[in-house]
Design a binder for these strands. Structure first.
Ligand SMILES: [Mn+2]
Ligand SMILES: [Mn+2]
Length: 439
DNA sequence: GTAGCCC
DNA sequence: GGGCTACAACGCATG
DNA sequence: CATGCG
């Protein structure tokens, strides 16, 4: 039984960008659907002269879109024109603490733009970085970052009070969401069996996440989208564990090697993870380059990025022909082979204390539902570093703090996305298996 | 950053 | 209305 | 099996 309309009353608008009001208004939870007749869509995407016709309890509220139906699609581009970001930057270019941003047809209410997210540090000669700076960065970097976020279930790392405030993971968004936010429903076997994940598939979503204090964007290594390279074309992610396991979300589109230095600076608190230090990162760099060489011998081309914290991410883009289990086995094999060649430098130990003094290769990231900070995502640590894709030659001299939300745009305008090919040329694993069995 | 709960 | 709290959570490795 | 790990 549906709740009665009176029970659904609420004081505040459920819309993320409340429409202009001309008379006193009673808001309702968006839980029931009504049919109305109306004169036309206004240019703002509102109803002109709507009149109630009937309740439509046969329609699922979540399936209802706000605004006129999309125009018969222009071919979808996978990157945005730079001008779209320009319009955002222009609106942000003032000192208002709050403002209603217009993004295409959507409106996003931005608040606390002056709040310091990354505090100043005089010793490191760092100026404060505000929430406005974050949203500016997201708007500018979107055309490079969105392709790497597309269709991947997102975990938000939120710090609404900045990096010195409370921080929390958030996988699901229970509150009302703007219409432009796409989601995917995934079986969970927890809390009522299924849960919605956000897909950061468009610019307004990225900016809205910034408004919500998302400083880090962590994504799955598989995509909720079918394609000719995928061994599964199933998109039922939610009806059962079996459905999810046989769906395309169970087929990663890259192998992941998470490279974490466990070389301590000596300044860490008891039991804390190692801080960024030159020796540790130099070790990570060396291991990544060895790994690249080994993979090359297997006819696999790897790409590298800084994680933004202390280590590196090495990915091998692949056709989606093996499940996460298969991918993990391959990475374990490759990792152990490399460890045998460099036992002094590399560890794959599971007990943290046994990793000390070495570089940890984590192959266990190749699991459905595991996430890593996506390319170009900032990190909630001092200096506002970002996860930076690099050419292998650039890695030789790179340091994690070389790439921050204050300087990567200038670099990107010159170099473009170093990981552009990750999204295109996927490798067939058949050749790799061949080269292993040949010895 | 925001919603819900409890006083 | 103000203060407090929640906002992940699972499968794999290992002993 | 319980627990630690990311
Ligand atoms: Mn790690
Ligand atoms: Mn890492």
């Amino acid at each position: 039984m549906r709740p009665s309309l009176a029970k659904l009353a609420r004081k505040t608008s459920p819309f993320s960008a409340p429409p202009p009001l001309h008379r006193p208004t009673t808001w309702l939870e968006p839980e029931r659907v009504v049919e109305v007749s109306f004169a036309e869509w206004t240019p703002e995407g509102l109803l002109r002269a709507p009149v109630f016709i009937r309740l439509r309890d046969d329609i699922e509220p979540r399936s209802v879109r706000n605004g006129p139906p999309a125009k018969p699609a222009k071919a979808r581009r996978d990157s945005l024109p730079a001008s779209e970001a320009g319009a955002i930057l222009q609106q942000l270019d003032n000192d208002a603490n709050r403002l209603d941003l217009t993004v295409g047809g959507a409106r996003i209410r931005l608040t606390n733009l002056e709040r310091v997210y990354w505090p100043a540090d005089r010793r490191a000669r760092r100026a404060p970085i505000t929430k406005r700076d974050l949203i500016r960065y997201l708007a500018a970097v979107a055309r490079f970052m969105l392709p790497h976020l597309k269709d991947r279930p997102l975990t938000m790392i939120r710090m609404p009070e900045g990096i010195d405030g409370e921080r929390f993971f958030q996988k699901h968004w229970e509150q009302s969401m703007p219409d432009f936010v796409e989601t995917v429903t995934v079986f969970s076997g927890h809390k009522g069996e299924k849960q919605d994940y956000i897909l950061a598939n468009n610019l307004p979503t990225l900016l809205w996440l910034g408004q919500n204090g998302t400083l880090e964007f962590h994504v799955w290594h598989s995509r909720a989208a079918v394609g000719p390279d995928a061994a599964s074309n199933r998109t039922d992610y939610s009806s059962s564990l079996e459905a999810l396991e046989s769906s395309v979300l169970n087929y990663p589109d890259y192998l992941v090697f998470d490279i974490d230095p466990y070389i301590y600076s000596g300044k860490e608190a008891q039991g804390a993870e190692p801080e960024l230090n030159e020796k540790g990162f130099a070790g990570a760099r060396k291991v990544a380059l060895w790994l690249r060489t080994l993979l090359k011998q297997m006819a696999l081309e790897a790409v590298v990025k800084t994680s933004g914290k202390t280590g590196l991410h090495v990915f091998v883009p692949i056709e989606r022909t093996v499940t996460f289990d298969g991918a993990r086995q391959i990475c374990e094999m490759v990792g152990r082979h490399l460890m045998k060649e460099h036992p002094k430098e590399i560890t794959m130990e599971w007990a943290v204390e046994k990793r000390s003094g070495k570089i940890f290769i984590d192959y266990n990231m190749n699991v459905r539902g595991k996430t890593l900070n996506v390319a170009y995502s900032p990190r909630g640590v001092p200096g506002a570093p970002v996860s930076m894709p690099l050419a292998w030659e650039e890695l030789e001299t790179a340091e994690p703090l070389d790439f921050t939300i204050g300087n990567v745009m200038a670099r990107l305008e010159k170099t473009g996305d170093r990981w552009h090919d990750v999204l295109l040329g996927k490798h067939s694993l058949a050749q790799a298996f061949g080269s292993i069995s040949r010895g």
